[in-house]
Design a protein around this nucleic acid. Structure first.
Length: 423
RNA sequence: GUGGGUGUAGCUCAGUCAGGUUAGAGCGCCAGGUUGUGGCCCUGGAGGCCGUGGGUUCAAGUCCCAUCACUCACCCCA
């Protein structure tokens, strides 16, 4: 057991990096305020069955990636691998179906999946997501996509690409599924081992395969788009109208099939060219049957989630630097006699919302100045010596090196003045 | 779950192929370069069971085996 190492697939986020996280989270929150999504905070673990039922028994997430445990009361619990299921549960638990619809919610927080870690993939990772319940309108899907698009753009990732598709509903998908199985039945020999497996369990996934042998059939394969029922067809058409209306560039990817079972009609994904193998920055779609599956009244829903680690990764490729925030003022002592006054000055500066720092290691004046310079403080106040006995202090501008003598009575005002703050 | 790459100082890495005295560099950190002043420069210092365990050998950072971790990819996803 390595006590000095975080568990596999997890990591610490230290101050300079946490700064970048805050920026992303604040942007997400700001957008949610503008688009009128309210924050919801749900537990990090839920009853195991909530996920297996909603995400789908056959999915990779449920079949091999969940952190499941039994608590002391013999309950089967699972650390959430995604958040849509939890939000649906909360929507029902608190009777939000009685509130004016649609109910629009967002969340930010950690998720857990037992995967082999690799670039942009962790066992504890973080998602920002939104969910909207109670409307079937394709305009709502378009709004969600627009919100996501704005997040990327405003964070400085203009080259993300949007792909959309429709996976139909419980009326048109089963017949299509059979049609697809029929199409591949006589070609089983030429499919990769994985796809031969998929043919039985989840034939739609074959469309996701990257093997050339499998892809070679894709030119003639019947697509979802050609097999949607009239309702799903017009819904998909309306979504595309909505995206055009909002001037959102997109590409219809007839092979876009998402890994969670609950999606109906709209599915979409944002791809970044700068991400390596895990090129998906975020995605989502509509889930009109999910609330019912979880034991509620028939209620349509639509949502989106994005991985914060993925955004960070993409921004890093962008070459965005992370800089630790500098203090505004460093207070140095010329001799130990001034130390009590140093602490009072720090207290008073902080009361005026000025960030300031002092030495705690008994450093020499020279070393204190060195620290001040290294921390990139804008100003340094020096207390001690003859000036201190005369009720004065030295105020030094670290950029120019210029230094004034200021009376201790007016030192706060002088600092504020030099920082261009209101006195 | 499968495959490849990598583990030497806080960080980035030499040294491993041809085993052989006290294991190195740059950056970072700490101190000093005479009165009470940072950045540049100079000098000095601290800091390493060479990932861990076993084996081969007179001798292992170096060769062999195992194991753990990190990393990239597959699967899948965020």
């Amino acid at each position: 057991m390595l006590l000095t190492r975080a568990p596999r697939g997890t990591r610490d986020i230290l101050p300079p990096e946490a700064e970048k996280w805050r920026r992303i989270e604040e942007k997400a929150r700001e957008l949610c305020r503008l688009y009128r999504y309210g924050e919801i905070r749900t537990p990090l673990f839920e009853h195991t069955e909530l996920f297996s039922r909603s995400v789908g028994e056959e999915t990779d997430i449920v079949s091999k990636e969940m952190y499941t445990f039994e608590d002391r009361g013999k309950r089967r619990l699972t650390l959430r691998p995604e958040s849509t299921a939890s939000v649906v549960r909360a929507y029902l638990e608190h009777n939000l179906n009685a509130a004016p619809q649609p109910v629009k919610l967002y969340y930010i927080g950690p998720m857990f999946r037992y995967d082999r870690p690799q670039a942009g993939r962790y066992r504890q990772f973080h998602q920002f997501g939104v969910e909207a319940f109670g409307s079937q309108s394709p305009a709502l899907d378009a709004e969600i996509i627009h919100l996501a698009d704005q997040l990327y753009r405003q964070l400085g990732l203009p080259d993300v690409a949007l792909e959309v598709n429709s996976v139909g509903c419980r009326r048109c998908r089963p017949p299509y599924r059979e049609k697809l199985q029929g199409f591949f039945r006589e070609k089983l020999e030429s499919l990769c081992p994985d796809c031969r497996q998929r043919h039985g369990t989840n034939p739609l996934r074959i469309l996701d395969c990257k093997e050339e042998t499998c892809r070679s059939h894709f030119r003639e394969v019947p697509t979802l788009g050609d097999n949607l029922c009239p309702e799903c067809g017009s819904h998909f058409a309306a979504l595309q109208e909505g995206l055009k209306n909002l001037n959102l560039p997109y590409r219809v990817n007839p092979f876009l099939v998402r890994g969670l079972d609950y999606y109906t009609k709209t599915v979409f994904e944002f791809i970044s060219p700068r991400l390596g193998a895990q090129s998906s920055l975020g995605g989502g779609g509509r889930y009109d049957d999910l609330v019912e599956v979880c034991g509620g009244p028939p209620t349509p829903g639509s949502g989106f989630a994005v991985g914060l680690e993925r955004i960070l990764l993409a921004l890093e490729e962008e070459g965005l630097s992370k800089e630790e925030e500098a203090p505004e003022v460093y207070v140095a002592s010329i001799d130990a006699g001034a130390l009590p006054r140093v602490d009072l000055l720090l207290r008073d500066l902080r009361a005026k919302k000025v960030s300031c720092e002092r030495d705690f290691l008994g450093r020499s004046l020279k070393a204190q100045l060195k620290q001040a310079g290294r921390s990139r403080a804008r100003l340094t106040v020096l207390l001690g010596g003859d000036e201190f006995r005369e009720g004065k202090a030295l105020l030094k501008d670290m950029a120019t090196g210029e230094q004034d003598t200021v009376s201790l009575d007016s030192i706060i005002d002088a600092v504020l003045d030099n920082l261009d703050r209101e006195v």
